[in-house]
C-alpha cells in the first residue's frame, strides 16, 4: 500500500523535473506552443534505406535535432514509388511529432491513380533541395546537343528508346513535357519501363537504351568518368556543380521539370508548429556540416519557406496533372 503512492510521487516528481528540463531547453521564437517539441519526432522517409532520399533525411535529422533539442528518428516506409510513405505522412497525427520528407512524386501519384492520398492532405513546411531531370546519353551518342536530338527524333519518330524508371515517373513526365513543348507526340521517343536510374544507366552504357532521363547527381560517377554526357538539364538555372550542362530553356525549349524534396506535415497541423519546423529546417540547411554534405553528394540545396513551398506544390500538381490527363496514362 505504501509503495504505490511512493511510486506515484516519484513519477510526478520525475515528470515535473522532465518538463522543467524541457522548458529549460532554448527554444527560438516564443510564438510556438510553449512546450513544442518536448518528445522525439518521427521523420518518415518514403524510399529505400541507403538511397538518396534516405541520406538526405538522415543528414537533415542530425542537424534538426540540434535546433529542436529533441531526437528526430528516421522511419523508412518504402514502396509503391513513394505512395506508402506519403500515405503514412498524411495519416499521421497532426501534432508535429510525425513529419515526413516528401518528394516530387507526391504531386503525381494521385493523378496517376496509384495513390489514394492527395497532396491537400499534407502541408509543405520547407523545401530542402531540387534535382531537375536531365537527358543523359552514352559518350559516343551521335548528338552534340538537345536540338540535334529533337531534329533526329522529328525525322525518325519512335526510333529511339529512353528510360529513367517506371511509366509515369518524373523522368517519363519530363520527357513527355519536353516533346509536347516542341510539338511532338509523346510516342516520338519510346519509353521503356525500368526499375530506376541505376538499371537505366547500365542499359545506356551497354547500348540497350539511347537516352536516360535522370537527375545529374544520379549519373555523377559516369559523367565524371566520361562514359556518358548530359545534353541538357530541365531547370531554370544551370547546376552550379555542373555548369557545363545547358538548360533546356537556353536551348530554346520552354520546359522545366524534375524532382524535389521537402519537409511536410499532415494537414491540420498548427501554424506555430509549422513555423517552428520551418525555422529548424532552415537552420539545418545553413549549418556548415549540412552544406558540406550537400556539396559532396552533389545535391543542390534549394530552400523555399512554407508558404512559398505550399504554393510550389500546388503549381507542380497542376502542371503534372494536366500533362497526365493529356497523355491519358492515368489508371482509373
Amino acid at each position: 500500500m505504501i509503495k504505490i503512492p511512493r511510486l506515484a510521487v516519484a513519477a510526478v516528481t520525475g515528470s515535473v523535473l522532465l518538463s522543467m528540463a524541457a522548458c529549460a531547453t532554448p527554444s527560438s521564437g516564443d510564438s510556438t506552443e510553449p512546450d513544442y517539441p518536448n518528445r522525439p519526432i518521427t521523420l518518415i522517409q518514403p524510399f529505400s534505406a541507403g538511397g538518396g532520399t534516405d541520406a538526405i533525411a538522415r543528414a537533415l535529422a542530425v542537424e534538426m535535432e540540434e535546433s529542436l533539442g529533441v531526437p528526430v528518428n528516421i522511419e523508412v516506409r518504402e514502396g509503391g514509388g513513394g505512395a506508402i510513405g506519403f500515405s503514412a505522412m498524411a495519416n499521421g497525427k497532426a501534432d508535429g511529432y510525425t513529419i515526413g520528407l516528401a518528394t516530387g512524386e507526391i504531386t503525381t501519384l494521385a493523378h496517376l491513380g496509384q495513390m489514394t492520398t492527395t497532396p491537400d492532405q499534407i502541408v509543405g513546411v520547407a523545401q530542402v533541395n531540387a534535382y531537375p531531370t536531365a537527358i543523359v546519353v552514352a559518350a559516343d551518342a551521335p548528338w552534340e546537343n538537345v536540338n540535334d536530338l529533337i531534329e533526329d527524333v522529328r525525322s525518325k519518330p519512335g526510333a529511339f528508346t529512353a528510360s529513367g524508371g517506371a511509366r509515369g515517373n518524373l523522368g517519363d513526365l519530363g520527357r513527355a513535357g519536353m516533346l509536347d513543348t516542341v510539338g511532338l507526340p509523346e510516342t516520338a521517343i519510346k519509353w521503356v519501363a525500368t526499375d530506376g536510374a541505376a538499371p537505366t544507366l547500365q542499359e545506356v552504357l551497354a547500348g540497350g537504351l539511347d537516352l536516360a532521363f535522370t537527375s545529374l547527381p544520379e549519373a555523377r560517377a559516369l559523367l565524371e568518368s566520361g562514359d556518358v554526357r548530359a545534353l541538357a538539364v530541365f531547370a531554370e538555372d544551370r547546376d552550379p556543380l555542373r555548369p557545363e550542362v545547358p538548360t533546356l530553356k537556353e536551348e530554346g525549349i520552354d520546359w522545366a521539370s524534375g524532382g524535389w524534396r521537402g519537409i511536410v506535415v499532415p494537414a491540420g497541423t498548427s501554424e506555430a508548429v509549422i513555423e517552428r519546423l520551418d525555422a529548424a529546417t532552415k537552420e539545418a540547411l545553413e549549418t556548415a556540416k549540412y552544406k558540406e554534405f550537400a556539396e559532396t553528394t552533389g545535391s543542390t540545396v534549394v530552400y523555399r519557406e512554407n508558404v512559398e513551398f505550399q504554393t510550389f506544390i500546388g503549381e507542380q500538381e497542376k502542371l503534372f496533372g494536366s500533362l497526365i490527363t493529356k497523355l491519358g496514362i492515368a489508371v482509373d
Partner: peptide
C-alpha cells in the same frame, strides 16, 4: 511498372510494393 497499374492490391496501399 510498365503500365503503372496496381495489380491484385484490392485497394490496400501496403500491397502496392508487392
Amino acid at each position: 511498372i510498365v503500365s503503372g497499374y496496381p495489380r491484385f492490391t484490392f485497394g490496400a496501399d501496403s500491397l502496392l510494393s508487392g
